[in-house]
Simulated assay, not measured.
Amino acid sequence: MPYVKIGLLMLAGLVLFLFALNYLAEGLKAVSGEKMQEWLRKFTRTLVSSILVGVIVTTLLDSSSAVIIMTIALVNSRALTFRQAVGIVLGANIGTTFSSQLIAFTIGQWSGVPMAIGLGLMVLARRESFVQWGQVILGFGLLFLGLFLMEEAVEPLNQLPRVVDWMKGLADPWRGVLAGAGVTVLLQSSSATVGMSVVLAGQGLLTLGAGIAVMMGAELGTCADTLVASIGRTKAAVRTGLFHLFFNLFSILLGLLLIGPFTDLVHALSRQASAERQLANAHVLFNALGVLLVAPLAPWLATQMERWIPDSQTSRKQPVLSS
């Protein structure tokens, strides 16, 4: 019976969390209108500006998959070049870490406050813009409520030996990565996977090393959406999806090789922080270091991918933006 009760409460929190992510993204898209796509097109003239745009837009939308899929669509329509998309993909990997920092605040018990404010704006406001902001605020409240339900659900797991033993097994980096990737593909959300990892770390069920391995797996699992989105698209759009996969694979493999020193580094930088904050900081550090390592090589990598997957003769005749 404890497993059934815990499972049902965990499922309720997870479903609410996923719903809140989608609801929040829709609200932010409604607030921004077409501005997001305009920013992607206008402010991506250089690699650095492309990375910054990727960071900002992903932070606002709280979904790297949504931003990269949007980028693939713009590349497919030739509103963006492949080289512009490379910077956005790199920036999206940093921007997605904002959600883990937010989750680590563990303020789920206060979720009713933004929910009440958001609902009040949606019901009482007459201006459409206020109603849209109400949806955004309500979405944040629902997000924290879903996390709070998951926290309450997993608290008794510390007393269940089978669960504790299985969680300890995730300290094996390869097991942790596979678990994180599998859960992310199943849930179609790396934010949900990382969010659950932060919650489990806070309850003492996941060590920092195991949490980092699961987090790296989530980065791999999120590539599934973008690869599917690139199927049947132009060669430039396919290159964008593959670049996202190759970048994440490179970061994860390097992370697995250096997971011991990396975990020690996170411990040293976050010595006084809670377990939740340590894992959230590891998420930021891992993705930021990956971008710093790859960004100087991005022009060369783009050239190699253009030679490997060249544009067709017809697409070369189409006008494209300069990188």
Rank of each mutant, 00 (worst) to 15 (best):
G33S: 09
G33V: 04
E34K: 11
E34L: 08
K35W: 15
M36K: 14
Q37P: 05
E38I: 05
W39L: 07
W39H: 06
W39V: 01
T44V: 02
T44Q: 00
R45Q: 13
L47N: 13
S50R: 04
S50M: 02
I51Y: 04
V53N: 14
V53A: 12
G54N: 05
V55G: 10
T58P: 09
T58W: 14
T59Q: 06
L60G: 01
S65Y: 03
S65T: 11
A66L: 12
I69C: 13
M70F: 05
M70H: 06
I72V: 11
A73Y: 06
L74Q: 05
V75D: 02
N76E: 01
N76A: 04
R78Q: 10
R78I: 03
R78W: 00
T81C: 08
Q84S: 01
A85Y: 00
A85H: 01
G87F: 00
I88Q: 04
L90G: 06
L90M: 11
G91E: 04
G91N: 07
I94N: 02
I94T: 05
I94S: 03
F98P: 04
Q101L: 12
Q101D: 05
L102F: 11
A104V: 11
I107Q: 15
G108P: 06
W110C: 04
W110G: 06
S111C: 14
V113N: 00
V113P: 01
P114E: 07
M115V: 08
I117Y: 06
I117E: 05
G118K: 12
L119Y: 02
G120P: 15
L124M: 09
A125D: 08
A125Y: 06
E128H: 08
E128I: 14
S129G: 11
S129D: 13
S129Q: 13
V131K: 13
G134V: 10
V136K: 03
V136A: 04
L138S: 08
G141I: 03
L142K: 07
L143H: 10
F144Q: 14
L145P: 10
G146K: 00
G146N: 00
F148Y: 11
M150E: 12
E152D: 13
E152V: 13
V154A: 05
V154C: 03
E155Y: 09
L157V: 03
L157T: 06
